[in-house]
Nucleic acid binder design. Structure first.
Lengths: 150, 150
DNA sequence: ACGCGGTGGTTTCGTTATGCAACCAGAAGG
DNA sequence: CCTTCTGGTTGCATAACGAAACCACCGCGT
């Protein structure tokens, strides 16, 4: 038996989840977006087992989301930094955060929030729009099989 | 031992992942957005084990993302439909799809894509914007601990 | 009313992933 | 050198997962 993989799926959502759909990857990526780079920083921030972290970091590196760099402070250790591909996950994090903030807290609970560094204000809510700018809901969309590019 | 839960985390991303962060939930929700409602429809579409599906559906119902309804065709069976809270996950799906489409396919592979029903055109790419409308990257943002509402 | 197949699950059992703790090698620091 | 810290790996116990068998109930044909 094996954990079923979506590698062959034509659906991009399934492909994404195949890469970053486990319990820890998105949290690691969140921390990486916040500037964490060292193994120990991730481990302390997330409180996860070191073997699992090690596994996940390797996985993310293998998929080109993180890359290993020589330490920025001159020491001989290595650091994990987001690649371009990893940076592009930002909207997913924002979407997750927005939904979590709205639907996963009781009134009165302490929470954190992502804000605009320039003015310290909350972000504008994410919007799904058509090419011509109309706001869309899931009912306004459909899935199409598109021919391979080129 | 137990799978570590993020229930107490102050970070909304962690909270979200605690609810929908497993391998299957987002795929079930994707199919629900596409209009699937019956147990058997999900099972056939996803090819997953029925016990796991059963578990996941219960979990999603318990968290108020799906709700059980009497069948729409008059038969005595039940159907699973998205609640308002579940509908709000749409931007996350769009974000996952967009990233997957860009970064998880080889050239020439068949893929599916979400399109605007009105004109059959691809959607506008998601954008993270500040309250004043400026485009933001992760570097332009910071996490703040905000006081409980009210 | 009776039998049969389809739907919607639950149970059972073997495999895989996760979590914890112990261990270990190399780098920093003194 | 000798010690401590960083960055892992290894081994083991347990929880989650996956496949298939099993089961109850619905609806339909007769």
């Amino acid at each position: 038996m094996k954990r079923t993989s979506m590698e062959g799926a034509a659906c991009p959502v399934a492909r994404s989840l195949d890469v970053i759909g486990d319990w820890w990857s998105m949290l690691i990526i969140r921390d990486a977006q916040l500037g964490l780079r060292r193994f120990g920083e991730f481990q302390k921030s997330l409180g996860m087992a070191k073997n699992i972290l090690s596994q996940r970091l390797r996985h993310l590196v293998a998929h080109g989301i993180l890359e290993v760099q020589p330490a920025s402070d001159g020491s001989a250790w290595q650091e994990y930094v987001l690649t371009e591909k990893g940076q592009r996950l930002f909207p997913i994090l924002v979407a997750l955060g927005e939904w979590g903030r709205e639907h996963c807290f009781q009134e009165g609970e302490v929470r954190t929030e992502l804000r605009d560094k320039a003015h310290g204000l909350p972000l504008k809510p994410l919007e799904v729009r058509a090419a011509d700018g109309r706001l869309l809901t899931s009912q306004d969309t459909q899935v199409e099989r598109v021919p391979p590019e080129r």
